[in-house]
């Protein structure tokens, strides 16, 4: 096991706020493990405990068999951490930042260049530019390079693509896939569902607890009800009408359509009829496969 967390609890404000409440999970070597959950679910606290920046109140955690308390020095030598906010030196250039982080880990850029080559080549044209002057996507690529330069066995990425355009996000995940191929274990949190499905396994967190851990496919398959998508030009009106329908289990706007489930099995015609009785005729109703986001919303609701 590359990461093993058992019964970790962390409280703030003298025990009144449970940031993390008795969490356990394990991550295997070469796995991309995703942490998903709303803000305040305890994801960042978990990252900080695993990177030895925060001490847990109770429980044990190990990274590559190093205990986060006893072997903290080994962990600091052997893992890469990318915090949620950009935290490189904005007044140093791209190259200087990379050089700096290589040096404090007692290595050189040349020594591990093969690890960062694919990423660094993309930002190399700007190597003399100050890090603070880079675009959001560039900054994240540089931060990833800096986190990788000492050849860590585990990478901790706390929302690495938040605030980054979709093209850069895709490029970033392509790189993570390449790192995975090199057997680097990655623990990553993300608010984006299209990124979540790229993980090998996911943990859904809420209020300091893990609701479920599974592969994206299984999480999707575990959706308990038949899901319908209603498309209309009067989303708000139809949304309210569906919510007032006696048999509705859940109903929410999802992109340009409405996702709705019912307590008892039903079909498209019944729904269409109900809505057309209300005066909504210009709409389509169809059965759909749930996305991972539907599954999460379903789980968070319960």
């Amino acid at each position: 096991m590359m990461i093993s967390v058992s019964h970790i609890t962390k409280t703030y404000n003298k025990g009144t706020i449970h940031a993390i409440n008795d969490i356990s999970f394990e991550v295997e070597k070469g796995e991309i493990f995703g942490l998903i959950g709303p803000d305040g679910a305890g994801k960042t606290s978990l990252f900080r405990i695993l990177t030895t920046l925060l001490l847990a109140d109770s429980g044990e955690a190990k990274v590559n068999d190093w205990d986060v308390v006893k072997d903290y020095k080994k962990i600091r030598n052997g893992v890469g951490y990318m915090p949620g906010r950009f935290s490189l030196y904005q007044d140093l250039s791209v190259e200087e930042n990379l050089n700096f982080f290589a040096t404090i880990f007692d290595t050189t850029i040349e020594e591990n260049y093969h690890l960062i080559k694919d990423i660094y080549e993309q930002i190399e044209p700007f190597k003399d530019r100050r890090a603070g002057k880079l675009s959001g996507g560039m900054k994240q690529k540089l931060a990833l390079c800096c986190a990788l330069i000492h050849k860590p066995v585990v990478l901790f990425l706390d929302e690495p693509t938040t605030g980054v355009d979709s093209v850069s996000r895709k490029e970033f995940w392509d790189m993570l896939m390449k790192l995975k191929a090199q057997e680097i274990t990655i623990l990553v949190s993300t608010p984006y569902m299209d990124e979540a499905v790229l993980c090998d396994r996911l943990a859904l967190m809420q209020e300091g607890k893990i609701l479920t851990i599974d592969t994206p496919e299984k999480i999707r398959a575990s959706y308990p009800l038949q899901l319908f998508a209603v498309k209309t030009n009067h989303t708000y009106k139809v949304l309210n009408e569906l919510r007032n329908y006696k048999d509705t289990e859940s109903c929410f706007a999802f992109g340009d359509s409405i996702h709705v489930t019912f307590k008892t099995p039903t079909d498209e015609k019944t729904i269409s009829k109900y809505l057309s009785d209300k005066g909504d005729t210009d709409l389509t109703v169809e059965k759909i496969e749930p996305t991972i986001e539907d599954s999460f919303i379903q789980m968070l609701k319960n």
Binding site: L53, R76, P83, Y89, I104
Partner: peptide, 10 residues
């Protein structure tokens, strides 16, 4: 936030 990066280094 750079101190975080320094702190997770040896």
């Amino acid at each position: 936030g750079t101190i975080e990066q320094i702190n997770v280094s040896p």
